[in-house]
Design a protein around this nucleic acid. Sequence first.
DNA 1: AAGCCATGTCATCTT
DNA 2: TAAAGATGACATGGC
Length: 618
Amino acid sequence: MLKAKKYLKEGLIQLTILLSLIGVRVDLDSYLSGYYSPLIEINLGPSSAYTQTPFHNLRETLDGYSVHPKCPELDHFFASRRLLEEVRTLGSPRFHTSLNAWLVHQVSPTDKTGSGPSSNSSSSSSNIGNGPALQGSEDDREHLPDADQATPEAEHGPCSTGACAFPKEENDVQIKEEEEPAPVTQLAHSSTLEQESLLGGVTSLSDSESHHPPTFDFDQHWNNLLSLSVTDLDGLDSLVEDNDITTAISQDVSLHDAMLTTAGSFGVTSGQGMALGLAALPFASVCNLPGDEPPHNVLSDCLDEAVFDQINQLGLEGLDNMDMQLINHLENVTPQVLEDLDSDSGLSLESSSGGPVSPGVSDMSSSSSSSSSYYEDEGGATGYSSDADALPLKGIADYTSEWSPLDHSESMWHDHSYSSHTFFNQPSVTLLHKGIKEEALSDIEESGLHGQQMSRDELRAQAMYIPFSVLQIVNMPVEEFLEILDGHGFSAEQVTLLRDIRRRGKNKLAAQNCRKRKLDAITGLQEEVERLQAQRNKMMREKQLTAKTMCAVGHQIKQLTRDILARMRDDSGQPLNPERVTLQCGANGRVVVQPLRRPSVSTSSGNKTDKRKKEKKQ
DNA sequence: AAGCCATGTCATCTT
DNA sequence: TAAAGATGACATGGC
């Protein structure tokens, strides 16, 4: 299990390497951590206010991914995703060269032919423009993006025609691919090529034929892999035994982001993208797929929905648990299932999304409903289920709405009103035709949902046959909401109820936000009071210290004055009386002896002071 | 039983 | 003008 975990971590590392190569530091740790934040506490600081930002608008640009709108790290999440999108659009060939070198290192020596890395070195030793200086060592070559630029590809790849738009690195990829018999490398290279095809738009290298010149070794190794049982993952460990990826590399990478990199275009030999890496091997071996699968193949869905969703759902900390789920998936993957998975429904991972604070990422599927991406915003990471996922229906096959009745995100809603499981396993009540609607509601009753605590609005909505959940009503954009009010033939009572539900829901959030701000303000004021008190105490201490210092200096001056006066004599040769005279330092620096003022003088001044005080009192 | 606290809801005002 | 947000006030339920 640890090895499987290792594979998945390596996917993270690969993506991190990619981003680091172009100087982009993507830190999605906040996303990963905040993604599952149940937001239990209300006082999480100023940034944790319950925002009512229309995230559905933002999410439409985020491939349907959902983050809990209350997540304080949502901005980081969006920023990170934007960075990733920029990275994908860069199409820099440096990506693939460096990654390619790294992936070559994944190959166990036992899987390499006699050529090995050294043969690679020899075959790709011709450096264009860089000269032999870059050919010193393999390590050097691996760390120099341009060091692996090969020329012999003129006889091999499609780039030899001169029509290849790829920079030199792509030629290198082609050569390595042909010379690396190890399946690990094959897959990795294929991932690289697919990535390149996505980024650079060059399809020649992505062509399946160009990917499989060494078909013999490839098939042989694939057969070896396919012979592995699910429990034989340790056997795969040997394939990556030499993987010495440092753990110091930041792994703050979302596998979802990596997954998206190649979403939609993907083959067995064109891997799931960099983040997939070696993690794809167990799946590939189990899925038993031919090497020239079409882009939308089973492995894609399998990995997309089963692996990365679970990984992201569980977080890196939960990889141990994920291992078990992963294995379960592997065990359950059959060709029939895989065919089903190929129908955009993805893997159902309900088993991993049952917790009240579980965001249910597994149900987050690629939505084809462009206008409904605001589903369950309150659910945050829950996202919304696609129609296929959202319909574990019994006898309800007809639904016309894009609205999903599943409120996985109810768990994120506050307990008082919207129970966690109210709609969680609820059969569809989406815009059912009238006959079916009653059936659906009867299913609701049968499912025992009435036994659970439901909010008043939920009960009202069900009583009024409102085919939307409270969260949907509250979180949908106003345009959609108005369209629903006008376009679905609701009665006046239903419209009123819909508006009330929406108003109450939004006001509830506003109240929460308001209270949060109030608490923050109180907390801030308390902190300021403490700070000011500390400052006051400090100043008091300084004042006391200053007073002590002044007192000490006064004593020293008096003592010094006595000493000086004791050594001085008046005109008659008598010592000066320190009680009658004193020393006075003049402006010019001269010290002169002055007679002390008589007490009467000070008395008179004191009288004046008393007179002033009396005047003030009057 | 009283008090405290968290939350939902309403009314009202502001944006 | 409508929608949404902000906020004080009140009600309710749990502890």
